[in-house]
Design a protein around this nucleic acid. Sequence first.
DNA 1: CGGTAACTTGACCGGGCGGTCAACATGTCT
DNA 2: AGACATGTTGACCGCCCGGTCAAGTTACCG
Lengths: 206, 206
Amino acid sequence: MRADAQRNAVKLREAAADLFQERGLQVSLKEIARRAGVSHGTLYNLFGSREALIDEVIADLAATRLSAAAARALASEDAWAGFAGYLTEVCELQATDPALGDVLTRRFPDASRLMAVCDNSYAATEAIIARAHQDGSLRPDFTASDLLFFLASHAPLARATAATGSDAWRRQITFMLDGLRAPTAVMVEVAALSPEEINRLLIQES
Amino acid sequence: MRADAQRNAVKLREAAADLFQERGLQVSLKEIARRAGVSHGTLYNLFGSREALIDEVIADLAATRLSAAAARALASEDAWAGFAGYLTEVCELQATDPALGDVLTRRFPDASRLMAVCDNSYAATEAIIARAHQDGSLRPDFTASDLLFFLASHAPLARATAATGSDAWRRQITFMLDGLRAPTAVMVEVAALSPEEINRLLIQES
DNA sequence: CGGTAACTTGACCGGGCGGTCAACATGTCT
DNA sequence: AGACATGTTGACCGCCCGGTCAAGTTACCG
């Protein structure tokens, strides 16, 4: 590989990392090239597809963060605390980093490394859940697939909420963990969104 | 208004209603015109904007269905059952009718009648929640805004899930209502999605 | 300092969208 | 029947996307 191509690849990776984390994994490739100060033809030449670019730019990052969260969960003394902490942590990632939200929420079958990350992550959640099942703290009918479903549905709004600087998405986590029935409920500490705030969120949520 | 314009308006309303309910309130206006067998120019001429078309086609439908659900909830003897039933019913609407999902989930500020429907619906939710607060069955920190947040995050995946014929989204409702902690958990009856099923859902979820 | 291989570029393809408007067609009313 | 108002049409605008490729440029090696 020639030196200039090397440099361009670096510039493109940086631009892609920035834009992926700012706006998610769906940003247009032409825009990435634009931000990198390079023709979009070059991007196609060097990477060939969005999946390949994602794989190079996001897979390691995602693996690091997700496995750290999983490791913390499994290291926890209390299986329930480990599970609850994991759920919370992953939601924090989703809320603050659109790219990571998309990693869990979208699928890119041709990004093989990223797919491996997803598989590992799924296996880790199964272990975390199994541990909490074993000590009886987690309802036995809750599965890793349920967790993924929750994460996927939660991601877009959490992202949009966090983008406004609000923490309101944490309320949903609390509800999910505690349940809505008063007898077992623990009070949430974060303030609810006002109707106006929610309206604004929903409008800008494309 | 000339008779042919009248006829075209009818055709367009019908096509719009079909497409909105099949694919949500974001379908392209040109496609609606195409299905109605009419030029898109005519659509713009007769309705002027997507909001106006939505207002004519969806507002009444939404009002009817939402207020029926709310009325049922408030008529229920048991405040908790009313609340839980309302949540479930609204989620069923979201799952089976993309247009209704969008009504609660997106905002169309220029569709004045629809906005009124949303406001009414929000007020009804507040009443349903207040009733459940009063008899102590619903945790006091849960608000109408929280419910809306939940509905909005839940809608896209519920729709995608239901489109595959699965009922798995109901699990999330159960979890939300019961909480995840085993001591109070009630077992869900619907089967969990397999990882493959979830993958497929997430791929096709644009 | 060549000359070749490697690389970059941007015009171009086909597709989509929302939206506008001059030219044409048709309903309607006298 | 005629003529005017009312409607319809589809080409056109500007914008976006993913993707390709001939022509031009640049790095590198001998």
